[in-house]
């Protein structure tokens, strides 16, 4: 274990999030069993009031978790000089087998919590708590994710030993190796760009269709998710090369370093936000038929889709800028 302030801050966030998750899951169980709007009893009123607390708490946990996600990656990057062989976050995360799972769980928590908050806001706009059961069923699913994330993160930090020799991005992201990261790295650049352009187009078309004709929202959400994964693959396969001006450096984490102008944040932040909003829009679309939401949801979904498209647009601009401003010539 390395005794470091950022690590303690991260564990603090996870600890608090875990507490909130446990407690709200407990409350969620009560809601699923006892919730009855027709009942004017004190218990029902108290439950209704507790939903306020849960929403506020979750809002904060979500904010803290989003910050913690950034801090986690940033700190991993920073700690690289403590480990033999580590040049960037990849090396730090590779020090033991819990590093990457911790990161993935954190990312999953970010998306799940974002969707939950979007549903929560919609629920509170309806006059008869239309989504409350859904929401609390969601919390019961979300809680294990948050707890698992915290536990894996703790295991990871507890197992950090500075004397370990770790392997970094130059070993992980080469086409020569086996494994998913190498497959992705080996993705031909031209194909990667075509795929990225294609899913971008799908997002743009389905987004435009839902904004103008009010249809295709589901398609938009699905395209958004596809775009997310394609974009990650394209970053590894080709976009990173442009940023580094280097024909063989495929790392998706070195992008976050000051040497590269923190360009990674410019790419990842809009991509993550766009995806979270697209997911939220898709989930809300499921409930568009609920009577008390019929007048509210379509406008909200439009807004989410609009914002999501702006975010994806920013990601697109960042990608194009990376390509245009690069010295590197891949397609000669």
């Amino acid at each position: 274990m390395i005794f470091q302030t950022p690590i303690m801050a991260l564990l603090l966030v996870s600890g608090l999030a875990g507490l909130v998750a446990l407690w709200s899951a407990w409350f969620g169980l009560r809601v699923l069993r006892r919730w009855n709007l027709a009942d004017g009893s004190r218990e029902q009123l108290e439950m209704e009031r507790q939903t306020h607390l849960i929403s506020t708490l979750f809002g904060f946990v979500m904010l803290a978790e989003a910050l913690a996600l950034l801090l986690f990656v940033y700190n991993a990057d920073r700690m690289a000089n403590l480990f033999v062989g580590a040049m960037c976050a990849v090396g730090t995360l590779n020090v033991n087998e819990y590093g990457f799972p911790a990161l993935y769980l954190k990312v999953a928590t970010f998306f799940a919590a974002a969707v939950w908050l979007i549903v929560d806001r919609a629920d509170r706009a309806g006059r008869d708590y239309p989504l409350t059961r859904v929401k609390y069923a969601g919390i019961i699913l979300l809680a294990p994710l948050i707890l698992a994330g915290g536990a894996v993160e703790l295991t990871y930090f507890a197992g950090l030993e500075t004397d370990v020799i770790t392997s970094c991005c130059s070993k992980l992201f080469t086409p020569a190796n086996e494994g998913l990261s190498s497959e992705v790295t080996g993705l031909p650049p031209a194909l990667a760009l075509w795929l990225l352009g294609g899913s971008g187009l799908a997002v743009a078309l389905s987004g435009a269709a839902s904004l103008w004709w009010g249809r295709g929202q589901m398609l938009f959400a699905v395209s958004g998710v596809v775009l997310f994964f394609v974009a990650l693959a394209a970053i590894i396969s080709i976009i990173s090369l442009y940023v580094y001006d280097h024909p063989n450096h495929h790392c998706p984490f070195c992008l976050l370093q000051p040497e590269h102008g923190y360009y990674g944040y410019v790419l990842y932040l809009p991509l993550f936000f766009g995806t979270a909003l697209a997911l939220g829009a898709g989930v809300l679309q499921v409930f568009v038929g609920r009577p008390s939401l019929r007048d509210i949801l379509p406008a909200r979904i439009r807004k989410l889709i609009g914002l999501s498209m702006v975010a994806f647009g920013l990601f697109g601009l960042a990608t194009i800028w990376a390509i245009v401003s690069s010295q590197l010539i891949v397609f000669g």
Partner: peptide
């Protein structure tokens, strides 16, 4: 740097928020 400030922020503000949220809610309801 940003890392330090974020950490400092999380370490000092989060416990405060955590400690005050429930009482706030209690008064508010």
């Amino acid at each position: 740097d940003v890392l330090q400030l974020t950490t400092l922020f999380l370490v000092t503000v989060l416990p405060y928020v955590a400690a005050t949220l429930v009482p706030i809610w209690r008064v508010a309801t």
